[in-house]
Simulated scan of single mutants.
Amino acid sequence: MSKACKSCPSASAGGGCSSGHDPKSCGDKPVDEKIAQTLSRIKHKIVVLSGKGGVGKSTVSANIAMALALAGKKVGLLDVDIHGPSIPRLLSLGDAKPHIEPDHMEPVPYSQNLWVMSLGFLIPDKETAVIWRGPMKLGLIKQFVRDVTWGDLDYLVTDCPPGTGDEPLAALQTLGQEAHAVIVTTPQGVAVDDVRRSVTFCNQMGNPILGIVENMSGFVCPNCNTTHDIFNSGGGEKLAAEMGVRFLGRIPMDPEVVRSGDEGFALLKVQSESPTALAFKKIVEPILALG
């Protein structure tokens, strides 16, 4: 088995390829060189992960990308959630279509500093189910890096689906060990238990962890400004201390976050001084410090 095959999700325990690919034609050198060329023009790769679904990971990804763009950085936002791509909806890009040529495709522009790519732009309608196995997911994620004309970027923010399966594995393998992870959890124990596996996953892959974000951390009453810990509080911070990684901060539960997602506008762009927006800005500070 070749070195490339050993890291491929299609590799079987017996040393063969479960996808039936010919190793001589799989992962050929020109394709790998094109990926390397694309990545060489991107200064920093940020991968947003969570071992648990429903923690607001896509919302965190979109607002991190928006905060970086508002800070004057050139940013790409890559949605590799194959079965539930949320980024187009969150940014009101649901009807957008990328310009596609035979040898490349252009990301969808959101603003002067932010470009987006998602499978959600390519499926024919909202009702279409994507029923793919691992090798097809790996191929698409590689294509989104290799064939999308990202150009020169300061940051590429990648939004992964929950868990430690095909998509997060393919994303980290494609982006390489230079990619930094931001891990999202909610405070309650059932989420923290699953998110702990994401920390272990990144350690096993050899990718540095920027830190843990605790989302939905307390509800601030708009009438009396009293904080109510609906899902408890502090679970993410305790996990960060336990696993020896940085705690990036808490994001409160905010009805405006829900409304912004449903209506497709970026919270940071319209409520830049709200407690939630300020929490996002604090979380982004270590990312901006990467240079």
Rank of each mutant, 00 (worst) to 15 (best):
M1I: 13
K3W: 01
C5A: 15
C5D: 15
K6E: 15
G15P: 05
H21I: 10
D22P: 04
K24C: 10
S25G: 12
S25V: 04
K29C: 09
E33G: 05
A36V: 03
Q37W: 00
S40R: 01
R41H: 11
K45N: 15
S50Y: 09
G54D: 14
V55M: 11
V55D: 07
S58T: 12
T59R: 10
V60Y: 04
A62D: 07
A62M: 08
A65L: 00
M66T: 15
A67Q: 13
L68K: 07
L68S: 06
A71Y: 03
G72M: 09
V80Y: 02
V80A: 11
D81F: 08
R89I: 06
L93G: 04
I100T: 15
P102K: 13
P102M: 06
P102T: 06
H104K: 12
H104P: 12
Y110A: 05
Q112D: 14
V116R: 10
M117D: 01
S118N: 13
P124C: 11
R133Y: 02
R133V: 13
P135E: 12
G139V: 03
L140M: 14
I141M: 08
W150F: 08
D154Y: 06
L156V: 09
D159L: 07
P161T: 08
P168W: 00
A170D: 00
A170W: 02
T174D: 00
V182Q: 03
V184R: 06
V184S: 11
T185F: 01
P187A: 15
V190D: 09
A191L: 10
A191S: 15
V192N: 07
V192H: 05
C202L: 09
Q204I: 05
I212P: 02
V213K: 13
V213T: 06
V213N: 01
E214G: 08
E214D: 03
P222W: 11
C224Q: 05
C224G: 07
T226K: 15
F231S: 06
G236Q: 07
A240P: 04
A241P: 05
M243Y: 04
V245K: 01
R250V: 00
P255L: 05
R259V: 02
E263I: 01
G264K: 02
G264V: 02
L267P: 00
L268D: 14
Q271M: 08
S272N: 10
S274D: 08
P275Y: 05
A279G: 08
L290N: 07
